[in-house]
Design a protein around this nucleic acid. Sequence first.
DNA 1: TTACATGCAAATAGTTTGCCGCCAA
DNA 2: TTGGCGGCAAACTATTTGCATGTAA
Lengths: 144, 144
Amino acid sequence: MSRERVRALKARFREQGYRLTPQRMALIGLLSVSERHPSAAGLHEEIKEQFPTTSLATVYKTLAVLKQLGEVLELEFSQQDNRYDGRKPYPHPHLICTRCRKIVDADVNLGQIVEAAVTDLAGYRISSRRFDFYGLCPECQSRA
Amino acid sequence: MSRERVRALKARFREQGYRLTPQRMALIGLLSVSERHPSAAGLHEEIKEQFPTTSLATVYKTLAVLKQLGEVLELEFSQQDNRYDGRKPYPHPHLICTRCRKIVDADVNLGQIVEAAVTDLAGYRISSRRFDFYGLCPECQSRA
DNA sequence: TTACATGCAAATAGTTTGCCGCCAA
DNA sequence: TTGGCGGCAAACTATTTGCATGTAA
């Protein structure tokens, strides 16, 4: 539940010696609620509704802190905004619409399926993984 | 075998009405051989050994053609160079070292394992997928 | 011959950084 | 009180684009 997630994130900030500024609390609140895997720019737009002077740089800097704490999952893209998940900061599969760029969680536990196979694969120490599915969401299919 | 791959790629260029310039043939040759998932800049460096005047823009433009033909797999990253695979242009899992950035193919057929589950997942029409594993390669582990 | 490709340079865009003033602890 | 933080602007970097020249077919 998002209220708990907010509390947990604030606690982690405090215990790691990071200051809890209004901007950071706002970002934590948004990330704890959003299921839409927002971009930094999107988060910035939302935060400005509460704190109009907030800069995009601050959003990026706070996301960097959260990444370092392992409290946000970053989905990298090369020519589009990266997308962030603060509700489920651990690797999990997504459904990514190649048209509208909507990202939702895939309801299939691929992690467990291949867990045994990937913990020590070819001598690698696996620390993270990325299972993404690209395709058209139902809405875009009907628009086509 | 890479000689066949070269032939196939040249044929596809011709049949699609694309010209086979020396630069393009060099790039096709490199992509058909390289198992290291090179970056555009890396390919540019290699091509310049054969054709010193070749520009990076031409490399990108030719990669764009190959992408459109579905003859190269592009692995996107946000703050590092994208990486390309012209030998196996279809989705397949990789092992990506988070330290040295080396990328090798993962010898596990995840695609087949979850094939049935993902062809029509949550109403999406899946067209592509990305299964990447991040971690330390054996070399980097021993250096740590 | 001529439409398409090359190569240069400039533009683009997401992200990061430097610096100074400010405020959370 | 004070060292970390926010905000602004500039820097950075991978990639894309525009255009004049060159060349594959």
